[in-house]
Design a protein around this nucleic acid. Structure first.
Lengths: 214, 214
DNA sequence: TAATTTTTTAAACATTTGATTAAAATATCC
DNA sequence: GGATATTTTAATCAAATGTTTAAAAAATTA
């Protein structure tokens, strides 16, 4: 009975979208915040309820279980993380250099807004690969991409994955290091963001050097 | 009473080191394995007991609590992770290029043996900064290091942290990506390790290009 | 070998935690 | 405005989980 209401509610949305922020959305937003910060296992449903300012039971009323709610958030974040890069990789009209510029720019912009995104996704994949979206056929997506073809044309002597790891390392790794840097007072938020902004310009240059290195 | 035995045991070791593998060491080793794989929160003391093949109560008998046992493991892993790099950074007799070669070589060797190390450390720092070793004065250690001085001498126009993030990104990030690559069949273990081995030679070259990029 | 100490075990405890229930409050519909 | 449906609440449940206990087993000592 209860869970039928989910469907009903969802259908109702099309007709009459909730005026202001709905309970459902409050919970989802709280889940985003808490799950991202603590990961699945360290998060208690009560944390989410408190963050959302709602009664604990409403979490199960709207989302059935902690697991289901997590899957929802993970799906979203996964989409955000990979959604940025896939379209760029497949663009047939841009050069290799342009793709790298775009990746650096878009990713750094995204991650400056949500710096916890990489650690969240990467550590959840490690902790519980089963709970993860199984069929990211990264091999297919990458293998058939324009980007890989262009990389291979430029450097047939190197495995494209080598170069992809390098560019992602340059772009993403700083955000993974960030907690250490900030905690150890090596940087503060403002300085870190400024550096990341600088990297938007540096990384394409660096990657170009890497492409030409012998 | 019970915990005094800890001391007694430890003292006894000096005189008569346990012949074969002691219960204490069995638990510690199991804790290393399980904590590394699942992180603190997702690990149950029962998991560790099972992995060690010992009675659950022995965990508390020897290590007082899950938390204490975790701290022990974390300290070790932290040491392993940072212990590799710090001596290299401070060597007054090696050039910048030599330091980079050493870092790439030593880190890739270490991480090939324990590929989960970076995700473990970095995600635990995120999840629970309090439970972490607070006083890694990374700012002091880095700031006063030979490496930073050499970086600054070579490229006074760039913040040394920019360059450190880059080299660590090139070295460490592949190991953080590894679960995704392996799960998505983009690589297998053997191929991944082969690529990491190649990187020992490539990264110094790449970093040199980065140092010269304008 | 008897006494004592140390280690191990099975059982239980106290809390935490994800989830459910039944009733109350609120909104919607005719 | 009254009936019905939906949402919210407080209380509770059952299972999981970190930890403790008390007794048994094993090792050590004298």
């Amino acid at each position: 009975m209860v869970y039928l209401q989910l469907k009903r509610k969802r259908m109702a949305k099309k007709i009459k979208p909730e005026s202001d922020i709905s309970t459902e959305e409050k919970i989802k937003e709280a889940a985003r915040i808490v799950f991202m910060k603590k990961g699945f296992s360290a998060t208690r449903t009560r944390d989410i309820a408190e963050e959302a300012g709602i009664n604990l039971a409403l979490l199960n009323y709207y989302f059935r279980s902690k697991e289901k709610l997590f899957e929802l958030v993970m799906m979203e974040k996964f989409q955000a993380f990979f959604g940025v890069i896939f379209p760029i990789l497949n663009d047939a009209n841009s050069t290799l250099e342009q793709k790298v510029e775009l990746i650096a720019d878009r990713y750094i912009t995204l991650l400056t807004e949500t710096p916890d995104l990489p650690i969240f996704i990467l550590s959840e994949i490690r902790t519980n690969a089963d709970r993860m979206i199984e069929n990211v056929r990264l091999d297919k997506i990458l293998g058939e991409s324009q980007f890989v073809k262009q990389l291979h044309a430029r450097r047939p002597d190197m495995h494209p994955v080598q170069l992809i790891m390098s560019i992602l390392g340059l772009v993403v790794f700083p955000f993974i290091m960030r907690p250490i840097l900030v905690q150890s007072k090596s940087t503060d938020d403002k300085m870190f963001n400024a550096m990341m902004n600088e990297r938007k310009a540096w990384i394409p240059k660096w990657f170009n050097s890497i492409l030409n290195a012998r």
